[in-house]
Amino acid sequence: MSRPLARLKLLIDRALAGTAALWPSVRQGFVFVHAAARLLGHAAGEPGARLRRRFDGLLGAMHRHRARAGDLAPALDHFRKVARSYRPGLFHTADVAGLPPTNNGLEQLFGSQRYHERRATGRKTASPGAVLRGSVRLIAGIGTRAQLRSAGDLGQVDNARWRELRRSLDGRRQARAARTRFRHDPDAYLAALEQQARQQTLPS
């Protein structure tokens, strides 16, 4: 064995000897984490109800045998706490055929929309219009890239729903404009409101 390899082996042996007391806790913690990862990954292809029962059993085992994890016991307690808060939706994808187990595809879709928005506007940050009209612009942008629309498609739009959507968007725009006017000149904005409140309503 060459001298560099011998020195490397000596360093590794010293490191393993110095951390030998920590490995039993790490080994036990790995057993719990690996079991949780298998259940969360739906590796067994089981229905959601069975996965929930098995996951509850695993959390119970973590609580009963937490002392075996040594210094990692607080980490297991934190994992159990967070897992209980997320438990209602953890295995929903096992009950719905075709539903992906992660939202990675959805995040990529939103990221693509943000990229096209930046290219079209030249802005590095999201424009105010994306916030005010995001419920329309996002769907329209994604739908346009997914499938070409014709004039016939536009003619099939429900006019009543379209008008209701326009009213909701106009309400958001007016609320934003009111906030802007208030920030620019609070005294003038409040004075205008007081003037409106004092005006007598005309008889119908």
Rank of each mutant, 00 (worst) to 15 (best):
residue 58 L to R: 09
residue 85 S to D: 13
residue 175 A to Y: 02
residue 118 R to Q: 14
residue 111 G to I: 03
residue 188 A to N: 04
residue 151 A to I: 03
residue 136 V to M: 05
residue 103 N to G: 08
residue 118 R to D: 05
residue 82 V to E: 14
residue 97 A to R: 09
residue 145 R to Q: 10
residue 117 E to M: 13
residue 112 S to P: 00
residue 132 L to C: 01
residue 190 L to Q: 06
residue 135 S to R: 12
residue 78 H to Y: 09
residue 169 L to P: 02
residue 124 K to T: 13
residue 174 Q to W: 07
residue 85 S to P: 00
residue 149 R to N: 08
residue 129 G to A: 13
residue 82 V to L: 14
residue 85 S to L: 13
residue 63 H to E: 15
residue 172 R to H: 02
residue 169 L to I: 07
residue 108 Q to E: 08
residue 93 T to D: 15
residue 73 A to E: 08
residue 107 E to A: 06
residue 59 L to C: 09
residue 172 R to Y: 01
residue 59 L to S: 05
residue 150 S to D: 04
residue 168 S to W: 08
residue 70 G to K: 02
residue 154 L to T: 04
residue 186 P to F: 02
residue 116 H to L: 15
residue 101 P to S: 11
residue 179 R to H: 10
residue 151 A to T: 08
residue 88 P to M: 03
residue 77 D to I: 05
residue 103 N to E: 07
residue 167 R to M: 05
residue 132 L to D: 00
residue 85 S to R: 14
residue 162 W to N: 11
residue 126 A to I: 11
residue 62 M to D: 04
residue 159 N to Q: 14
residue 114 R to L: 15
residue 160 A to S: 09
residue 96 V to H: 10
residue 149 R to L: 13
residue 60 G to T: 05
residue 155 G to V: 00
residue 105 G to E: 11
residue 171 G to E: 07
residue 88 P to S: 02
residue 87 R to I: 04
residue 135 S to E: 15
residue 73 A to P: 06
residue 153 D to E: 08
residue 97 A to V: 07
residue 167 R to E: 09
residue 93 T to S: 15
residue 112 S to T: 13
residue 155 G to Q: 03
residue 68 R to P: 01
residue 63 H to L: 15
residue 125 T to S: 14
residue 143 G to Q: 04
residue 86 Y to M: 11
residue 111 G to H: 01
residue 169 L to S: 04
residue 77 D to K: 07
residue 80 R to S: 12
residue 130 A to L: 15
residue 170 D to L: 12
residue 174 Q to S: 06
residue 135 S to F: 06
residue 136 V to A: 07
residue 114 R to T: 11
residue 73 A to K: 03
residue 70 G to S: 02
residue 94 A to Q: 06
residue 178 A to M: 07
residue 68 R to V: 03
residue 174 Q to H: 08
residue 184 H to V: 14
residue 139 I to G: 02
residue 112 S to M: 15
residue 119 R to S: 07
residue 99 L to H: 04
residue 131 V to W: 12
residue 138 L to Q: 10
residue 132 L to N: 00
residue 139 I to P: 00
residue 117 E to Q: 15
residue 126 A to G: 14
residue 146 A to Y: 11
residue 158 D to W: 03
residue 80 R to C: 13
residue 98 G to K: 02
residue 153 D to P: 01
residue 157 V to K: 00
residue 85 S to N: 09
residue 109 L to N: 12
residue 77 D to Q: 10
residue 151 A to K: 05
residue 158 D to Q: 03
residue 89 G to L: 10
residue 130 A to E: 14
residue 90 L to I: 02
residue 160 A to L: 09
residue 90 L to E: 01
residue 107 E to C: 05
